[in-house]
């Protein structure tokens, strides 16, 4: 899994966001078993305590749950995953819109610029 961290912000909240991303994008499938805390921590290169804290908070959201004996699993609830996916997308869009407004772009400009990009994509 591709982890990337910004050292200027708390790690645990970034871990939560990234795991949500992995789940939303399907990198970790619905109902799939997660690796152990230690394995995840080593993979991400972070403190196991931090990973543990992030996972506990994620359990709070319901996206993952833990089964005492068998470990942690991603939820099978497709709706919950879809909602998380939507949230992540909205967050990214609002960040994008803030940036475009700071450039001084109007709504129409934004849409036409997006269309241009898509056109370029199609041509590629």
């Amino acid at each position: 899994m591709k982890w990337s961290f910004d050292n200027n912000m708390p790690i645990y909240s970034q871990i939560i966001e990234q795991i949500k991303l992995f789940i939303s994008s399907g990198d970790i499938g619905a109902g799939e078993r997660l690796p152990s805390v230690r394995e995840l921590a080593t993979d991400a290169g972070v403190n196991p305590n931090t990973m543990q804290r992030a996972l506990s908070e994620l359990e709070g959201t319901g996206l993952i749950f833990s089964d005492k004996t068998r470990g942690r699993f991603v939820t099978e609830d497709a709706e919950l995953i879809a909602r998380a996916r939507k949230e992540l997308a909205q967050k990214s869009i609002s960040g994008f819109l803030n940036f475009m407004h700071s450039l001084g772009c109007t709504k129409e400009e934004i849409f036409s610029l997006i269309k241009d990009c898509e056109g370029d994509d199609d041509n590629e």
Partner: peptide, 10 residues
């Protein structure tokens, strides 16, 4: 964590 949250830097 508190350094990053409170100071906003690494």
């Amino acid at each position: 964590d508190s350094i990053r949250s409170n100071e906003g830097k690494s």
